[in-house]
């Protein structure tokens, strides 16, 4: 063995170690674990926690959320609605494209639609939150207003031009997220008239000034109803969002709110050990139970 130079012998040893590790930790270990996962108690979770529908066919997984929409983004009113999702295009909840919006606190100015092409519209996180809140408010017949949101459901953000760049006297004010011909949420700011935003025009020279407005600090529509989750596949909503939806479901399903509330409670998970995580309601399981207990008799 000592005939080879040491650097070469070490590389040959390295290659053999990598191959041995590939066989043991790379194949034996995961395949052994897969075999072990067939024992009772592990089998159901190991196979993906599948859920069966009324006809016995698989309808999904209790761990993976679904969109309860008509496929065009409109909520189906007979079902509890999931959170917004950034996984995949359209209504989200695409397990082949898990992920978050990844938009941060700076995301308050929209890229407005140009050339009548909806794909050019890139709403800021703020506008997404405002739009969702307005939509949920309309669906549940409650107040959908939020701080920093306009009444028409976009971000209340002004672009202010100053004669000294970022300071001095204001010369022009634009409501950045309200595309013309929308009526600006403020008629005037610092004595200047506020104009709507012209799509395609760059307003990068303006100082962005978000306007708080007079919406309540604790809006009626709960936070999870207006935000996308980290995976885009969150199977749960908060008990507050479920409670908000109860009257609509009860009306649609011709039963009492009390009955629906009892069902919601059944599918609510509290904090583990009393301190871990947040309480949540599993939406797919709840909707399956709804279909069993209080079938939707059509609109």
């Amino acid at each position: 063995m000592n005939r080879l130079p040491v650097w070469l012998s070490q590389h040959l040893a390295a290659l053999r170690v990598v191959l041995v590790l590939t066989l043991t930790t790379g194949l034996l270990y995961p395949l052994g674990m897969t075999a072990l996962a067939h024992v009772p108690g592990l089998a159901a979770p190991a196979q993906g926690s599948g859920l069966k529908g009324p006809d016995g066919s698989m309808v999904g997984s209790s761990l993976i959320g679904q969109a309860f929409t008509d496929g065009k983004g409109n909520a189906l009113p007979q079902y509890f609605q999931s959170r917004p999702s950034a996984a995949g295009s359209g209504d989200g909840y695409d397990p082949t494209a898990s992920g978050a919006s990844n938009l941060g606190a700076q995301s308050v100015v929209d890229t407005l639609e140009t050339n009548n092409d909806p794909k050019t519209f890139k709403p800021s996180l703020l506008t997404q939150v405002c739009a969702r809140s307005a939509a949920v408010g309309a669906l549940e017949h409650v107040d959908g207003s939020r701080p920093y949101c306009t009444a028409d459901g976009v971000g209340a953000v002004l672009g202010v031009y100053y004669d000294g760049g970022t300071g001095g006297t204001a010369t022009k004010v634009v409501s950045l997220d309200q595309a013309c011909p929308a009526k600006p949420f403020l008629t005037e700011y610092q004595g200047l008239p506020v104009s709507c935003a012209t799509p395609g025009e760059g307003y990068s020279g303006a100082v962005t000034v978000p306007i708080r407005g007079d919406a309540p600090a604790h809006p009626v529509v709960p936070p999870d109803a207006v935000t996308a989750s980290g995976s885009g596949l969150d199977p749960q909503i908060s008990p507050a969002y479920a409670a908000l939806q109860v009257p609509r479901i009860a009306g649609r399903r011709h039963t009492s709110e009390q009955n629906v509330r009892a069902l919601v409670a059944e599918y609510t998970t509290g904090r583990a050990l009393g301190i871990l995580g947040d309480p949540g309601v599993n939406v797919l399981e709840l909707n399956l139970a709804l279909d069993r207990s209080y079938p939707n008799q059509g609109a």
Partner: peptide, 13 residues
């Protein structure tokens, strides 16, 4: 402030 907390990108559970 609009949302009511740092909920964006956070899982309920």
């Amino acid at each position: 402030a609009a949302v009511g907390g740092q909920y964006e990108g956070t899982e309920t559970r």
